[in-house]
């Protein structure tokens, strides 16, 4: 088991006027899983994802990642945890427009205080893994959306994290590209030593999941085994 969440609660607003985004959620994730979290808009998926990846502190509940209690870490330990153990792919990628693709990919290693040369060399290697070696020296805006997505994936995996977190990875892609990318992730990046958690609305990619959690109104309503 790589991750275990118990009785997570998160609300926003003031004490008198609370909106609950996550209501008493518990679940766990095993190595080798590609877990989907699906559900209607506003059901609390992004909030949950942020809690388990060390970005948003819950009001109650505990998260264990690799048997360490996540929300007991101080700010710097938490930053290091995210830097070394988690890879993020954001919905809008958030690539620096003024850096080349390979420089964007190298960022996590640079934040780990690796040398420029070492980080860039690794950047080329990971761009090759996602099939974009020949695009490495272009800035992101010269790339197609699907290619930018792959740059973002290369940036997420360059630090070889155990846990990959994708929020709506296919939202800005057309159906075919979305499927291609997810099947690529499933075939080339998922391994027995990793887990991938994907939040999505996109039912065209559901069949790549190893398991699907369905959220509604801040709660997990059901858990389905995905099919390939």
């Amino acid at each position: 088991m790589i991750l275990e969440a118990k009785n997570l609660v998160k609300w926003f607003g003031t004490e008198e006027n609370k909106t609950y985004a996550v209501k008493d959620v518990s679940f766990s994730v095993n190595y080798g899983e590609m877990l989907y979290i699906v559900g209607p808009s506003g059901s609390g998926k992004t909030t949950l994802l942020s809690i388990i990846s060390g970005i948003l502190r819950p009001n109650a509940g505990v998260v264990f990642v690799k048997d360490k209690e996540l929300w007991k870490l101080n700010d710097n330990e938490m930053a290091d945890f995210r830097l070394f153990s988690i890879g993020f792919v954001f919905q809008d990628f958030h690539l620096f427009p003024r850096l080349t693709s390979v420089e964007n990919v190298a960022i996590p290693l640079i934040l780990q205080k690796k040398s420029w040369e070492e980080s860039i060399a690794a950047g080329y290697k990971y761009l090759e893994i996602v099939g974009l070696k020949d695009r490495a020296d272009l800035p992101p805006h010269k790339l197609s959306i699907g290619e930018q997505q792959r740059v973002a994936i290369a940036r997420a995996i360059i630090s070889e994290p155990d846990l990959l977190i994708f929020d709506e990875p296919t939202a800005s892609l057309d159906g075919d590209t979305g499927k291609k990318i997810i099947s690529f992730v499933r075939d080339n990046i998922l391994s027995a030593k990793k887990a991938i958690i994907i939040v999505t609305h996109d039912n065209r990619i559901y069949n790549y999941a190893t398991r699907i959690l369905r959220m509604e109104d801040g709660k997990i309503m059901a858990s389905n085994k995905g099919e390939f």
């Binding site: 970005i55 830097l83 070394f84 988690i86 958030h94 934040l111 940036r155």
Partner: peptide, 17 residues
Amino acid sequence: NLEKFGALKAIGAKKRD
């Protein structure tokens, strides 16, 4: 570059960085 700096924070950049 604000959002990108925010993304850096999410990825694990520390205040000092």
